[in-house]
Amino acid sequence: MSKTSRSQRLRRRSSRSVPATITALVLLALAVAVAWLGISRLVTGSWPDFMSSIRESLAEFTWNSPAVWAAAVVLALIGLILLLAAILPGKHTAVRLAGPSDADAKSVETVISRRGLSRLASWHLDHADGVESTSVDSTARKVTATVRTPLRTTSELSRTLTESLERKFDEIGVDPAPQVVVRVRSTE
């Protein structure tokens, strides 16, 4: 019997590589500093000079002092935040599109990246009458467009562009349809 191969889902979650890299670098720097201090203590038999003032100020604290408890709570919260960041899923990097009508929904998945959705919306709005330039930002649930126009009255254009963009998203089958917000700014 052969196992059926199963492809990865196209609608993935963000990788969080930047926060993981920053955390790893901070922990690595801390480990290097502690190792250097420990090796220095073993080789010379005493702590480095700058450590004596730190050591003397830390010697004043007791285990029951409020400063020690505050430091413990802060470190516990940082640990909890790092744990939650590792466990909870990130934002989706793509928006689902309705697939072909004759395809099986469990085996076929069609997506567009949020950046691709922004570019599509920007292209669509750029080709509308009365639009000078556009800037579009999108999330999985909301598409926000800022449009510049030479027109003085912008309320009608805003409503028209919002409806037009909503129709475009229905045509390509964005599922679920995001909330569309079009802000029109006059260049005059």
Rank of each mutant, 00 (worst) to 15 (best):
A98N: 12
R185D: 14
D102C: 08
W36M: 13
P66M: 00
L97Y: 00
R148A: 03
T110P: 01
M1H: 15
T62E: 12
A98V: 14
A128K: 06
R141F: 04
P89Y: 12
I78W: 07
T110R: 09
V174E: 02
R6D: 04
T4V: 11
S135W: 12
P150N: 09
S15F: 09
I39A: 08
S138M: 02
L27M: 14
R114Q: 08
V182R: 05
W36A: 12
R41Y: 08
L161F: 04
S5E: 13
R96L: 04
L80V: 06
R55S: 15
A94G: 05
G173I: 03
S133M: 08
A59Q: 08
L75D: 08
L165T: 03
A67N: 05
W69Y: 15
A71E: 11
R6Q: 11
L77A: 04
L37N: 04
I172F: 05
T134I: 10
G45D: 05
P100V: 10
S52W: 05
T149A: 03
W69L: 15
V136C: 01
R141S: 03
A70N: 14
A128Y: 05
V182Y: 01
A128Q: 07
A85G: 06
D175F: 07
A76M: 10
R55H: 10
A121G: 05
H127P: 01
A67T: 11
A98E: 09
V143S: 02
T44S: 13
S101F: 02
V34G: 05
V131P: 02
V73E: 07
R183C: 02
R167M: 11
S138H: 03
A20V: 07
S52E: 15
E60Y: 05
L125Y: 03
V18I: 15
S135R: 14
P19G: 11
S5P: 13
K142V: 01
T44D: 04
L125V: 01
A33I: 11
H92P: 00
E56R: 06
I39M: 15
S52D: 13
V73C: 11
V181F: 06
A70M: 12
V182G: 00
R16K: 12
L10G: 01
V32M: 12
V111C: 03
K3F: 12
L42H: 11
L42C: 13
A59I: 08
L165Q: 01
A71P: 06
D137I: 03
A24C: 15
R13M: 12
P176K: 09
H124I: 14
R11H: 10
Q179L: 09
Q179I: 14
A31G: 04
S113W: 00
E109I: 13
I81Q: 01
A177P: 06
L42R: 05
S46G: 13
E156K: 14
D102H: 12
A71L: 14
V147I: 11
R13G: 06
S138Q: 05
A70W: 14
S57L: 10
A98P: 01
F50I: 09
V32P: 00
T154E: 01
K3Y: 10
A145Q: 00
D102M: 13
S113V: 03
R185V: 09
T134L: 02
E56F: 02
K142G: 02
I87P: 02
G79F: 07
I22W: 05
W123S: 08
S52H: 06
W69Q: 14
V74H: 05
K91E: 14
N64H: 15
A76P: 00
L165W: 00
G130C: 07
P19C: 13
W123V: 10
L28S: 13
